[in-house]
């Protein structure tokens, strides 16, 4: 397995201080993102976090309102620059009356050094569907054809938006295997997902995004460590707004007399809690699931005074 040459080497694709607004929605808010050679990066975050917008900017579908977007040192809105990328979007439907092999041949023709047709079909797992018309395929098979179009040109960088949404477990595993193979062959991949296990299984680096900003960026192990929080419940009259500002508290909510705190570092927090409120009772400490911890990170460190979300 090839390791990144250097963390500081020239990035294949890069967003620097990029903002993008759609009408009233600020989809990206001054975001920085870089994909190094031979690296798989997962953009992880809830719907509406700005993942798809980041891909759209890097693949030249839209232009940034501010900041700089670069792809192989060029501008992704130039089609010649895009010969170095392959893209699989979330909701693309190909013309129904063309056959699978025709679709792949058409896209292969855009690239200077495409993969052989049979090889592309085999990698996407659609060899037996080559002569089928697109409208005669199941949804999962159509996704595979779209994947075939992304890889047919042997580009050094792939953008894949929510690759396994709607796939069954078996297809998802098969897809992961293909991604691992591409990565081993030195292809860089930027994928978006809202499945933590997918990011964990595939990525060298996870970029956690929420509300158009990068909340955390680390290896999967690092992200998991950050997210390995605890949930503390107890009965107390301590002021929740002040609690939320304590160092080890990532979120604080109240429900009647019960307060619930989330923390990445529970022990010092417990010590301080017991000191601050001698009447404190009914302590419960539970581990947070990874999903909960990331959701807490993704909604950022705000206090929710309502019922726990």
């Amino acid at each position: 397995m090839q390791k990144p040459v250097s963390e500081n080497g020239p990035a294949l694709a890069q967003l620097i201080g990029v903002s993008k607004r759609y009408g009233k929605t600020l989809a990206l808010d001054n975001i920085d993102l870089a994909i190094q050679p031979a690296q798989v990066v997962a953009l992880l975050g809830p719907n509406g976090a700005g993942k798809t917008t980041a891909l759209a900017l890097l693949s030249g579908a839209v232009r940034a309102d501010s900041g700089s977007v670069s792809l192989f040192g060029g501008d992704p809105t130039d089609w010649r620059v895009r010969r170095q990328i392959g893209v699989m979007q979330q909701s693309a439907n190909l013309p129904e009356t063309l056959r699978v092999a025709e679709h792949v041949r058409q896209f292969s023709g855009y690239y200077p050094n495409p993969r052989a047709l049979d090889e592309t079909l085999a990698m996407a797992g659609i060899s037996d569907l080559a002569a089928r018309r697109y409208d005669a395929l199941s949804g999962g098979q159509q996704r595979r054809v779209q994947f075939a179009l992304a890889i047919c040109g042997q580009p050094p960088l792939l953008f894949i938006d929510e690759p396994t949404v709607g796939l069954d477990v078996e297809s998802r595993r098969a897809f992961w295997k293909v991604i691992a193979g591409l990565r081993a062959a030195g292809t860089s991949i930027l994928l978006t997902t809202h499945y933590i296990e997918e990011a964990d299984a595939l990525a060298d680096r996870i970029v956690l995004v929420g509300k158009g900003r990068v909340l955390a960026e680390d290896t999967p192990a690092g992200i998991k460590a950050r997210a390995s929080g605890k949930r503390i419940r107890c009965t107390s009259n301590l002021d929740i707004t002040r609690l939320a500002q304590w160092p080890h508290v990532s979120s604080a909510t109240r429900e009647g007399h019960t307060i619930e705190l989330r923390s990445a570092d529970a022990e010092p927090l417990l010590r301080r809690l017991l000191d601050a409120d001698p009447q404190l009772a009914d302590i419960e400490v539970m581990p947070l699931s990874l999903e909960e911890a990331l959701a807490a990170l993704a909604t950022s460190e705000t206090i929710t005074l309502e019922q726990a979300a």
Partner: peptide
């Protein structure tokens, strides 16, 4: 139709000269 199906969007990010 191509705008609705997303086909045009995919073409726009492919290395196809406009």
């Amino acid at each position: 139709l191509e705008r609705e199906s997303g086909w045009l969007a995919l073409k726009q990010v492919s290395p196809m000269p406009t």
